[in-house]
Amino acid sequence: MGSMAKTKSELEKVIAEVRDMQKDVGKITNQQINLNSQLTENRLVEQELSLLKDDAEVFKLIGPVLIKQDLLEAKGNVSKRINFITSEMKRTDDQMALLEQKQETKRKQIMDLQMKLQEQAKQGAVQ
């Protein structure tokens, strides 16, 4: 019985780990959704800026005031931000892939442990 209790507590531990991982997956998914909508918005802005005439007046809202900005500078800033968002997306994708891998190993572990538990239960019944 002692070995069975040990297997059980081990199994519970692994299940808890998987649950934590699922929480992380949820967090990352939210980040991905956020990044995606930011990317879409920035792309729209980039497109609009590119449609403006070269001498168009562009302003940036900083707190409650509009500050005049150079069009080229604004374009540069937006494309820099798009680069940043894209690299962040790549990072979250990698994180997600890693997490899935880990989850997969843990799931296998759970199955092994469950099998072990069944064996032990059978042995216990025979004895």
Binding site: E41, L49, L52, V58, F59, L66, A74, R81
Partner: peptide, 13 residues
């Protein structure tokens, strides 16, 4: 008119 282009950018159009 000043138009909101998104992400804090405005343009006079």
């Amino acid at each position: 008119a000043m138009v909101d282009l998104g992400t804090g950018y405005y343009a006079l159009k």
